Amino acid sequence: MANCRISSADLFLLVNFAEYVALRVRGRQPYDNRLQNRQLSTQDREMLDRVRQPSAERLATDSAYWLRTCYDPSAEAEKIFLRMPQLLEAFCTLEEYEENIQEALSEAIEAHALDPELAEEEGYDPVEDAKPWPMFHSDYHMQLVIGRIHVVDATTLASEGRNAGKVLVVWFDECGRAIRYSREALEDASDIAGLSNYMLNEYGCWVNAKIGQPYQWGQPLGPPYGENGGDSD
C-alpha cells in the first residue's frame, strides 16, 4: 500500500476516515500529536465522535476487542477500521515498532534460506504441513500486529453451516490488513480474549491460522521479498 502523506493541518480536518486508515504509523503521528496537545473545537469533537461509537457496540479487554458487525442476517458488515481508526494506534514508540519488524523480517528471510531440514527439526512434516514458510515468518507476523479483534459477524450468527457459531479472530497490522485469522468456537475465543498476542505465539489459533491475503506467498507484503527487504512503499 502506498504510504500516504498529508499535512498535520489537513489531517485534523479529515472527513473521510479512509485516508486516516491508509496512513501507516509514522503518517498518523502528527494527527495523534495534535489530538494530545490542543483544545478541540466543537467541530473537531463532532468529527471524532463519528468514529467513537457507544461502548455497548464493542467490549474491550486488555488484549482484544469484541465487535458485533451484524444485527440482521441481510445487513452489510460494518467497516470496522473506518468507524474506529483508533484501533490502529501503536502502543510502543515508532522507532521500536519499525526496528522490531525489520529485525524479525531479516531473521525470517535468513531462516527461510537455510536447508529445509531445519523445518523438519522443528517438527515440520513436509507431507502433512505443506510449505513451511509460515513457521519461519511467525515472529515477523507477530511483530507486525497492532491489535486483535474478535468479530461476531453474519457467519457467526448463522443457524447452520460449518462455521456457524464460530467467532472470527483477526490479527491486524497498522493499516487494518489481516495478518492472520481463524474461526474459533465461542468458548475458545472467550478463553484467549484476555491473553496478550505473544502468549498465543504457539497457540493453535495462531499457528494454524490462515495468512491474510496481503501477506501470502507472492503477494505485496509476503515472501519472496525484493531487494527492498519487504518494504512495499
Rank of each mutant, 00 (worst) to 15 (best):
R45S: 06
S159F: 09
M199R: 15
W217P: 03
G176Q: 01
Q53P: 03
Y97D: 06
D44R: 02
A108Q: 06
C4Y: 15
P116N: 07
L35Y: 10
L200C: 06
L144R: 14
E128C: 12
E117T: 05
L195G: 05
Q36Y: 03
E184R: 13
R52F: 05
P134T: 04
G27C: 02
Y198L: 08
I149N: 00
A158W: 07
V127F: 14
E120Y: 05
C70E: 00
S196E: 11
Y181Q: 13
E107S: 12
A113K: 11
V51W: 15
G204T: 07
D129V: 09
G194F: 06
Q53Y: 13
Q43S: 14
P224I: 12
A130P: 08
V167P: 11
Q102N: 14
A77D: 12
E19W: 06
L186N: 00
G123W: 01
P223F: 01
Y198W: 14
L67Y: 07
M199V: 09
I179H: 07
E57G: 15
P224G: 09
E160L: 04
L157I: 03
L87S: 03
E103W: 06
L105W: 04
V151I: 14
L67C: 06
P134R: 02
H141E: 06
T69M: 09
R83L: 13
R26N: 09
N3P: 01
S182A: 10
L168H: 13
Y198V: 13
V15G: 12
N16E: 14
D173Q: 05
L59T: 12
D188V: 13
L23G: 01
R24E: 14
G218V: 05
L186R: 11
D129A: 03
Y20T: 02
Y65D: 02
L82M: 10
R28F: 07
D32M: 08
D129S: 12
E78F: 09
V51I: 15
A158V: 02
I101T: 01
H112L: 10
T42K: 07
Q39R: 10
E98N: 13
P116D: 04
P73K: 03
E103V: 14
C175H: 05
A60F: 10
Q53D: 04
D173G: 10
A119W: 10
P116A: 05
R52K: 11
Q86E: 08
E202W: 05
M47W: 00
D115F: 00
N3A: 15
K210W: 02
A90R: 04
L82Q: 15
L221C: 15
M142A: 09
V170A: 00
D233V: 05
F81H: 06
L168C: 11
D115Y: 05
N100K: 12
L87Q: 01
S106A: 15
Y140H: 12
E128A: 14
V51Q: 11
T69P: 04
H141Q: 12
C70S: 12
L13I: 03
V145H: 07
S196K: 10
S74H: 00
P223C: 07
E46K: 02
Y215P: 02
G218N: 07
R58W: 13
Q39S: 10
V207C: 01
G165C: 03
T155P: 04
D139C: 07
Y31P: 00
S232F: 09
D129L: 06
V170Y: 01
T156A: 06
M135V: 08
N201H: 07
P126W: 07
K79V: 14
